[in-house]
């Protein structure tokens, strides 16, 4: 079951929770939460998304970055200078991943739909 505070809006600004220990290995990572003594394995995509939860990027920005990295979606601006929506499949996957990260206490929901960059570490590791 996904969290009630699941991040679903394009303008939500998720940020990594403070106090987590991250050990990146190749393109993946293991996170340790000392407060709850729990371990989490993030595969490549999950780590990519979690690492970009910096309290500045919006959900849409993260989805754009995923699309760009995996070359699956349209991102940036169209020829008229308007922002284009990311591929809905990518956006859906990113939202699900963010919800799962939130459910596991790996990102805070305190910056939803705000632009508060103070709640995040700048360095994921």
């Amino acid at each position: 079951m996904l969290s009630q505070c699941a991040i679903t809006r394009l303008n939500d600004v998720p940020c990594r929770r403070d106090g987590l220990r991250c050990r990146p290995l190749d393109d993946e990572a293991v996170l340790y939460d000392p407060a709850h003594h729990t371990l989490h394995y993030l595969n490549q995509t999950a780590y990519f998304i979690w690492a970009r939860c910096d309290g500045r990027r919006r959900v849409q920005d993260i989805a754009d970055a995923v699309a760009a990295a995996y070359e699956t979606g349209c991102e940036g601006q169209d020829s008229g200078g308007q922002e284009r929506a990311p591929d809905p499949r990518v956006l859906g996957d990113v939202r699900r991943t963010l919800a799962e990260l939130a459910d596991n206490g790996l990102i805070d929901s305190g910056c939803l739909d705000t632009h508060d960059a103070t709640c995040c570490n700048s360095d994921p590791s």
């Binding site: 050990r23 990146p24 290995l25 190749d26 993946e28 990572a29 293991v30 371990l39 989490h40 394995y41 993030l42 595969n43 780590y47």
Partner: peptide, 11 residues
Amino acid sequence: SRARAVFELLR
């Protein structure tokens, strides 16, 4: 993957 291995080893 190495990350998966670390995770499983810690378990």
